[in-house]
Design a protein around this nucleic acid. Structure first.
Lengths: 256, 256
DNA sequence: GCTCTCGAATATGTCTGAGTAATGAGCTCA
DNA sequence: TGAGCTCATTACTCAGACATATTCGAGAGC
């Protein structure tokens, strides 16, 4: 479902400027300004531009990228909307301090993981998961209906069918955690779904990078499902707590 | 600090179209495209445009607003970045289903509260607070340093000095909760600060709308501070749990 | 009569170039 | 030394043209 996140082609330009600026061409479905925002977003999240640093002027930068100022400006507006940069007349466009970034925005999260994210950040995301998901599982056990349980079963089936090594398997994993958040009937928690989901699948990928198949994740998930289906809030929360803790342990050892 | 959220002037136009479209003029500091995004965002969050509904074409809409297509398009890119709308050639610009919205984006949250938010949504936000904040208080009690404690004390002083009925008092309240999240040393939790903060101050405003001063909130906050300062995680979590529960109770009775 | 393919209409997407407005820095002057 | 002013710089807004993608309908073919 997600594009392979590499639909931007960088053509090495002859320039030898202080910051190597590749040209931006959009992939098939993507719009040009989206591709530019993508490129700049990844650069910022990847630390190529330090907070406080000033970007080149509109005219100069859009020329280096070989795009019109219109497309460039629309891309900048996207970054502004996500709290990554701020631009004022005369002052130019500057990267904002990290605490102003909307780190939980799905796209920002994707940009963060497109590079090599710091272990600190991954740990922080797991800490967030360990706060949110057990509580969500507790609520889900209280409020779930037949539809929610079916969604959970379908996700489990998908995880069993495809391995977690495949994209389809990771999607099923995401669906499982997503279905739990949906079952809480809480819009604010559902909004966190995209963030949690990104964390889930990316950390799963990290696991796979290390050892081939560190541990079968299915039983943990089944325990969570059983508790939710049985309508036992405390058991659901406890099972989810265990799941996240084990996932963190796996990820930690895989990254070390 | 925050602009009064009313720096957009709507001039009733003579038109009698199905949806009354006011012209958009920007306030002092604000850029034009920002003002347009603001206006449209509030309209969408306020339910003036139903999910799935199609907006007028770029040319027609920008003309009704009496702005250039450039400014209008830049505003739309902002809304796209926040997951509110999606636009494709020939198909037009459509409002996305609610579950695609980045509800925790600070600006989106502000737009949601600029109208009369449903009690359901407020309850959901409190549910999120009751999940996040006790856990954050627990972590803060473990990790806080001298600077964090000073920030907390300063916030308490501010709350005592100005009443919660004033903007300064609400800012101090926000600062208190923000300082706790900062003390967790977790970027992901800090990113939630803006969302939590918005919920805190807006719900406080609701309280004020009802009874003049329903309850002195200071003692609750002091208990949280004491536990964090003493380095007692469980006590801090428990104190925060109580604080949020009481705040919800106050808000609920004020809205009913 | 039904399906499939292809073309044209239409709305968004991109580009160019001009002109406006806001801001920060340096200068002048008290 | 400090406050106020001028000015250069930069982003912001505008207008209009052209490009591109996607939908929808018409027509060919089965």
């Amino acid at each position: 479902m997600e594009p392979s996140a590499d639909d931007i082609e960088k053509e090495a330009d002859g320039g030898t400027g202080p910051v190597a600026i590749g040209r931006v061409r959009r992939g098939t479905g993507r719009r040009l300004h989206g591709a530019i925002a993508n490129k700049l977003g990844r650069a910022i999240l990847g630390g190529e531009y330090a907070p406080g640093e000033r970007l080149e002027g509109e005219v100069a930068f859009s020329e280096s990228l070989d795009v019109s100022r219109t497309a460039y400006r629309e891309a900048i507006q996207v970054l502004v909307a996500k709290g990554l940069v701020e631009s004022k007349p005369k002052a130019g466009t500057r990267v904002l301090p990290r605490n102003r970034w909307n780190l939980l925005d799905p796209e920002v999260l994707a940009w963060a993981f497109s590079g090599r994210p710091h272990m600190d950040f991954v740990r922080n995301l797991f800490e967030l998961r360990s706060i949110i998901e057990p509580a969500a599982a507790r609520l889900a056990a209280e409020r779930r209906d037949r539809t929610d349980l079916k969604a959970l079963r379908d996700a489990l089936t998908g995880m069993r069918q495809h391995s977690l090594a495949t994209e389809a398997g990771r999607a099923a994993d995401r669906d499982f955690h997503d279905a739990i958040l949906q079952a809480t009937r809480n819009d604010a928690l559902v909004a966190l779904s995209a963030s949690i989901g990104a964390a889930v699948s990316w950390t799963t990928i990290f696991k796979q990078r290390g050892e081939p198949l560190p541990r079968n994740a299915i039983p943990d998930h089944v325990r969570v499902y059983d508790a939710i289906a049985a309508g036992e809030p405390e058991a659901a929360a406890e099972a989810m707590r265990a799941l996240v803790a084990l996932a963190l342990e796996d990820t930690r050892s895989a990254m070390a």
